[in-house]
């Protein structure tokens, strides 16, 4: 029974991780920006939702809208103010990565000063578990996470394969110069990728706020999960990133069967290292060799 319970919890966490990782993978795959501040977007979305619903007492839809607007602004601003000027003059992996890490540090500490360093959460009747089988509790949030995960992923897939802008975005990852030759602006596409990628953290952040809670350091955890899922799934493959996220969420929860919960991040690391040793290409996609 415990195993079933852990599988269900794993499904909920995995769906959140999958969406977040797809956001990171989308940015990294199409723009080659190693966007470690992706975790910061997650923190912002979660805390804005918390601020509006708990502190200001607004309706949850208002909270959702607020955090959506906030992460969109974050994605667009970080691209325009930080990544664009760096890419204009040089834009090596190193420079972009350090700047992104700087932004992540700023956000984590700003949130920490504003809201305190402890855990906060949004309480909702949705997170109350209902006993379905004896000893197995399922909360409506599990269903919401899974439906959100699948829905957002399908919407993104349709956008990337059926619309012109989506196809241009995929082309950007393949050949930047050719995109420019076709008269499209790679910078605008990068901004779009950052905005879309950041948007994908909103469901995860809101569900996390309503279930396990948030703290300012959650960004670092999300950052690790997103990068690990991208590698486990195969760099450049969105389906891979989603599977990677799901796998990591499952592995983390199944580990509770034998280990204390503090070790969940250790499990992520072990899975990541195993993939790097035995299958650096991930599930899908090809390994970036030097």
């Amino acid at each position: 029974m415990l195993l079933l319970q852990l599988l269900i919890n794993g499904l909920q966490v995995g769906a959140i991780y999958a969406l977040t990782a797809v956001g990171f993978s989308l940015v990294f795959g199409s723009t080659k920006i190693f966007h470690v501040a992706h975790g910061a977007a997650f923190t912002i979305a979660g805390y804005i939702f918390y601020m509006l619903t708990v502190k200001a007492g607004a309706h949850w839809l208002v909270g959702l809208a607020g955090s959506t607007v906030a992460v969109l602004a974050f994605g667009v601003l970080i691209d325009r103010l930080v990544y664009a000027p760096i890419e204009r003059h040089e834009g090596s992996f190193f420079t972009v990565f350090v700047a992104s890490l700087g932004v992540a540090t700023i956000v984590q500490n700003l949130i920490g000063t504003m809201f305190g360093r402890g855990f906060v959460s949004v309480s909702t009747p949705l997170s109350k578990g209902v006993e379905v089988v004896q000893g197995v509790y399922v909360s409506p949030l599990v269903g919401i996470s899974v439906v959100c995960g699948i829905g957002c992923f399908l919407a993104l897939h349709l956008f990337l394969t059926r619309t012109h802008v989506g196809m241009a975005l995929r082309a950007l990852g393949e050949n930047r110069d050719l995109v420019r030759a076709y008269g499209l602006n790679p910078r605008n596409l990068s901004t779009l990728a950052l905005a879309l990628g950041s948007l994908l953290v909103v469901p995860g952040a809101v569900i996390a706020a309503a279930s396990s809670g948030l703290n300012p350091a959650i960004g670092a955890h999300v950052m690790l999960i997103s990068i690990a899922a991208t590698i486990v799934g195969g760099v450049g493959s969105l389906v891979g990133a989603a599977c990677g996220g799901l796998l990591l969420g499952m592995a983390e929860n199944l580990a509770h069967w034998g280990l204390a919960s503090q070790w969940s991040e250790a499990i992520t690391f072990v899975v990541l290292l195993l993939f790097i040793i035995f299958r650096p290409a991930g599930f899908f996609g090809s390994a970036i060799k030097t």
Binding site: F34, F93, F97, L224, I227, A228, I231, V235, F269, L272, L273, I276, P280, A287, I288, K289, T290
Partner: peptide
């Protein structure tokens, strides 16, 4: 493998 993997690891 490439630099990103080491950052992640």
């Amino acid at each position: 493998v490439r630099g990103e993997y080491f950052v992640a690891a």
